[in-house]
Design a protein around this nucleic acid. Structure first.
Length: 205
DNA sequence: CGGAAGATCCACT
DNA sequence: GTGGATCTTCCGA
């Protein structure tokens, strides 16, 4: 999988709703203690910074969301519900605070390691491995230590992989943002239709 | 300084 | 389908 190169700086420096669908099919590579775990992204959501009531950056910069204001290509990791981590890819120019939440992935290498971190058996359903933002983080051993880290080098990298084209992509409203009023209905969730690892079913058409 | 709510997950009915 | 776990963050008083 290291035959794939890290995504370029130019890739990230665009609005989150443009970058999000292009992240599907890409590989998130985690190196830890000599073990490599690789996950193919199958579900993401775009958050549009100051223009988006659902975004953590809607009300400006705080200690928690500082990483969102870095230049595109960095990670924004936050802690929720007192027990879970969620990983975002920051996009756009520095100061814009756009981000893409990584909601689900298919583990394509290092299944044993991922399953162990998740506390499930290696033959568990894909959804139980990394189908969900917090499950994805646990499967890859991602925590607060990566908040603000670059995704172009280091122990957690996002690589070119095999992009998915529009016919295979479903689009719908974001999950868990009912508090955001009208923005809750914005179609900023993108998912690979055929994936068995989605965090939850796609809305009926 | 207190309290409410949270970009979730799991066990159980 | 429902409720509980668990604790950080942020806003209002």
């Amino acid at each position: 999988m290291s035959r794939f190169r890290p995504l370029s700086n130019a890739f990230y420096v665009r609005p989150a709703d443009i970058v999000a669908p292009e992240l599907l099919g890409r590989y998130l590579v985690r190196e830890l203690d000599g073990e490599r775990t690789v996950a193919r992204l199958v579900e993401v959501e775009a958050y549009l910074g100051a223009d988006d009531p659902a975004s953590h950056a809607f009300r400006g910069r705080t200690a928690r969301n500082a990483a969102m204001f870095l230049a595109g290509g960095h990670a924004y990791v936050y802690f929720v519900y007192g027990m879970h981590f969620c990983l975002n890819v920051v996009t756009g120019e520095s100061g814009v605070a756009h981000a893409v939440l990584l909601r689900a992935a298919e583990v394509v290498e290092g299944v044993e390691t991922a399953a162990q971190r998740r506390g499930v058996s290696a033959d568990a359903a894909p959804r139980l491995l990394a189908g969900g933002p917090a499950r994805l983080c646990e499967a890859l051993g991602v925590d607060r230590a990566f908040d603000g880290a670059s995704l172009r080098r280091g122990e957690l990298t996002l690589r070119e992989g095999e992009p998915v084209t529009p016919p295979a992509i479903a689009r719908g409203r974001r999950v868990g943002v009912a508090y955001a009023g009208r923005a809750a209905a914005w179609p900023l969730r993108f998912a690979v239709r055929a994936s068995p690892a989605l965090s939850r079913p796609l809305a009926a058409r």
